[in-house]
Computed example of a mutant assay.
Amino acid sequence: MSFLSKLLVVAGLFLLPNTVKAAWLNSTGEIETLILYSQNQILVKLKDNNGAPVAACSNKEHFIIPASYSEESRNRMYSTLLAAKMAGVPASISYSEVDNCDAWGATPNVYRKITRITF
């Protein structure tokens, strides 16, 4: 194969569409519960809206602000959710449908990680 042929093949690969895409899913509703744990994890449940299931996440009722987020990020997210709960206004929770789950220790519970909150 000549150099020009190899170059055209490589250039053609860059023109192929990217078939792997991660998308955010959004669930909106009033905050039903906020559960704080000593492991720096916060579970969130929306009223009448469990959101779309994520195949890798076993828990379909709650969302999580994981301990792996910085303390500042967790505090901001918790404050936003608490403000929405106290005001009785719906919040919109965004989460990814791909590779975005947080395991709860050795239990079978694996929660959908919150990536964005708006209200």
Rank of each mutant, 00 (worst) to 15 (best):
L16D: 04
N50Q: 06
V9G: 07
T19N: 02
P53C: 06
N49W: 06
S58M: 01
W24Y: 14
L43W: 00
S27K: 00
L43N: 04
A23N: 14
G51L: 03
Q39R: 15
L13G: 10
L36V: 11
K45G: 10
S27A: 15
N59Y: 03
Q41R: 08
A11L: 13
G29F: 13
S58Q: 02
L25H: 09
T19G: 01
F14K: 08
T33E: 13
K47S: 11
V10P: 02
V9N: 09
C57L: 01
V54E: 04
Q41K: 08
G12S: 15
G51P: 02
N18V: 15
L34T: 00
N18W: 09
T19D: 02
T33Y: 02
Q39K: 15
I31W: 04
V44H: 00
K21I: 12
V20G: 02
P17W: 12
K21Q: 04
N49I: 10
T19C: 03
K21M: 06
N59Q: 07
N49H: 09
A55T: 10
S38V: 02
W24L: 14
N50E: 05
T19Y: 00
L13N: 14
P17H: 06
A56H: 13
G29A: 07
G51N: 01
K47F: 14
S58F: 01
G29V: 10
V9A: 14
N40T: 01
E61C: 01
W24V: 10
C57P: 05
F14E: 03
V44I: 15
S58I: 05
L15K: 03
A55V: 06
N40F: 12
E61L: 12
S58L: 01
Q41G: 11
T28C: 09
K45I: 09
N26L: 11
Q41V: 11
L43H: 01
K47T: 05
V44T: 09
K21Y: 00
N26K: 12
G51R: 00
L16K: 09
L36A: 07
V44G: 00
E32R: 09
L8T: 07
P53L: 03
T28G: 02
W24S: 15
G29L: 08
T19I: 11
F14N: 11
K21T: 06
E30C: 04
C57N: 05
I35E: 10
L8H: 11
A23C: 07
E32V: 05
A56K: 13
N50I: 00
A11G: 05
L8Q: 13
S38R: 15
N40R: 13
C57A: 09
K47C: 09
K21P: 00
P17N: 10
P53G: 13
G12Y: 14
G29N: 02
K45H: 08
F14P: 07
E30S: 06
T28H: 05
P53T: 13
G29H: 11
V10S: 10
L46F: 11
L43V: 04
L8S: 12
N49F: 12
L46A: 05
K45D: 11
L15R: 04
